[in-house]
Design a protein around this nucleic acid. Structure first.
Lengths: 366, 366
DNA sequence: GTTAGCACTCAACCGTTGAGAGTGCTAACA
DNA sequence: TGTTAGCACTCTCAACGGTTGAGTGCTAAC
């Protein structure tokens, strides 16, 4: 019952493709003329009536053509993924180059990726950093800055650097700072943020006991870093692109969408959607009404994840109108993520190799 | 010729106030009824004709009321500033509290200020950090992170921290890093970014000569920090607020404006406008057509500056439709900046005092 | 100098109308 | 039984034209 005949499938696809182009309801005659099926408009009409009854297309009003429903898009997207005949894009060669030349700081890299992706696809993009909770601490350092302040610097996996300014009542000498730093590193290095719990803090406090004043500020700073870890970092790019599409030509909806883009929590919940969306090939696709936020129900969200340090962590998403070019976005996103992931794991394995075997590098740089 | 009669002034003001409320052209009868002048609509009409000839108001079409021109707003705003009868806002007490409790890191502080300002005024805001070029270096530190990377951390006036990841071919020991750090500090501390020129770099290179490999990466990092210094940091907040106003109810103009908000260079040039705008009480106000970018010619920009370390540096701006509530924005912005400036200079003088006289503090914290 | 009155203008609104696109249904055809 | 041609029907949309109402400019009287 749920499975369509081959012909219905083709008609549905034709409707979707046409609608993706024109953003106008598509009628039976159009399909009859444009598609290679060689059927009359009347036949198409009959099939369309069936497709409508099955919920794959809808009619805005009696005498209009049909437009795909979320269910229709869903079927289309799924078959797109399954058939695997998603073209590979040329533009993404740029990415490889970029990834090679860019700093190895994850945040800068991701920002750039988002930017580029929105330029290529002409859709808004959202990128999230790995959740700090599970990110391992690589290095900590306390640096005295002036008589009343020091910086607690934390470097995590992916070479992401975080700073915390600490105010103090008395000056901290370089030696003291170094001593404290080494205690911090001894106790915390290699731990994930979420592993820094009370016992760990207690142990730290015991070891640091001597330097009372600074210690409490220091522990505060660590504490607030840990708290901050829950607060995922997020970058958006090309948000105004969404205004290009006629479905957002009235200010009300435009405003609603733009607002979501700029509100971190709403955006994150959109991206992390728990709706039973399609997941395949590391792609999560949420289409139209499948979105929880009403403001986003005219949008589709395509999300991929990348991993740093072995565990699934951050996300890269493209957001467009429901009537978006799924094929292109999926392909661009796909190859871009492959590149990104390769770069990330390459770095890691190289690092690990080096850690274990010591010296041994100098690869030709192309 | 250019100076208006008292009555004309009052009429102009009445027109503007009415238009600020309604966003509709205002007719002679409205003024006649609403204003305390006690004049008939006919008289108002005559005066309006004169005001129009002088360019203070315009008529969208023959049988419509009048709306203020940029020149009209200008007169209004100037007299507003001159008369000094700008009310003080209560809401800004929050700021004082915030300023007191917040970290002393300028970037976080400013971000918060922009956010708050956009919530209070319901207009978009833009905040720029002090131009790094003239910002003095307070402290530098090189921190080895792992076998192949180190971080160059730079702290400037206002406790703004910048990091640069450095890749290296061989591991850097803590001792080496400390040695290098102290050379860097000895040579660069107290200098402004723009003062780090070739001779300084040469001198550095000479002193650091021994450690060939790392030195060149290090100098690169410093170089790129200096270059980056030209690139002013900027934060926007509440950009979607602009979509609330009917003057941006068509997507075209909405998109144009939103785009400017998100393009750093365009936004900066808007804020830094060289047009002979009114400057008084540390306020620069650019009204409508006075803006260079066509996309912004339906907007007015109110900019104030704050100083860190004695020199004029960063800006805080509120952007609204030309028909914005100048009085309220000016007052809110004014008192907020007073607070901010007080907090900033307080910190500084306190720091200086401490540097000169050594210990002497312990103020009650509220 | 101010006001009342009047003719005039113009955008906005509204109901009508006709064209066009598209449908569903029926009957004929292969 | 599936496909097609034909036709009546529905609905949107744009254009048209008359009406309304706000507002003006001008003139004449106060």
């Amino acid at each position: 019952m749920d499975s369509l005949s081959n012909r219905q499938m083709q008609i549905l696809q034709a409707i979707i493709l046409n609608y993706l182009e024109t953003a106008e309801p598509v009628g039976s005659r159009t399909i009859s003329r444009r598609s290679p099926l060689g059927l009359s408009s009347a036949t198409i009409r009959n099939e369309m009536a069936d497709l409508e009854e099955l919920g794959f297309i809808v009619q805005p009003h009696t005498s209009a053509g049909r437009i795909p429903s979320s269910k229709g898009y869903r079927l289309y997207v799924d078959s797109l993924l399954q058939s695997g005949r998603i073209p590979t894009e040329d533009e993404t060669r740029v990415v490889s180059a970029m990834l090679r030349s860019k700093t190895r700081q994850l945040d800068a890299l991701l920002r750039e990726i988002g930017e580029l992706l929105s330029v290529i696809t002409r859709y808004p993009t959202v990128v999230t950093m790995p959740n700090m909770n599970r990110t391992k601490l690589k290095h900590l350092q306390l640096i005295p800055v002036d008589e009343h302040s020091a910086v607690l610097m934390i470097v995590t996996d992916g070479n992401v650097v975080r700073n915390h300014m600490i105010s103090m009542d008395h000056a901290l000498s370089q030696d003291e700072a170094d001593m404290l730093s080494s205690v911090l590193n001894r106790n915390l290095q290699g731990l994930a943020m979420e592993e820094i719990n009370l016992p760990v803090i207690q142990k730290l406090r015991r070891e640091l006991g001597a330097e009372q004043q600074i210690v409490s500020s220091l522990l505060d700073a660590i504490q607030s870093t840990v708290e901050y870890a829950n607060d995922t970092e997020m970058y958006t790019a090309g948000t105004t692109n969404i205004l290009d599409f006629p479905e957002f030509s009235d200010v009300q909806s435009a405003r609603a969408v733009m607002e979501v883009f700029h509100k971190k929590d709403e955006m994150l919940s959109t991206i992390r959607s728990t709706h039973p969306t399609h997941v395949a090939q590391n792609l999560r696709i949420t289409i139209g009404k499948e979105n929880e936020l009403t403001a986003m129900q005219d949008c589709s969200v395509i999300t991929t994840t990348y991993t740093v340090g072995g565990e699934t962590r951050g996300t890269v998403s493209v957001i467009g109108p429901v009537r978006m070019d799924y094929g292109k976005v999926i392909s661009t996103l796909g190859s871009m993520m492959t590149d990104l992931q390769r770069a990330l794991t390459h770095d890691e394995t190289q690092e690990e190799r080096n850690q274990h075997e010591g010296r041994e590098e100098k690869e030709g740089d192309g």
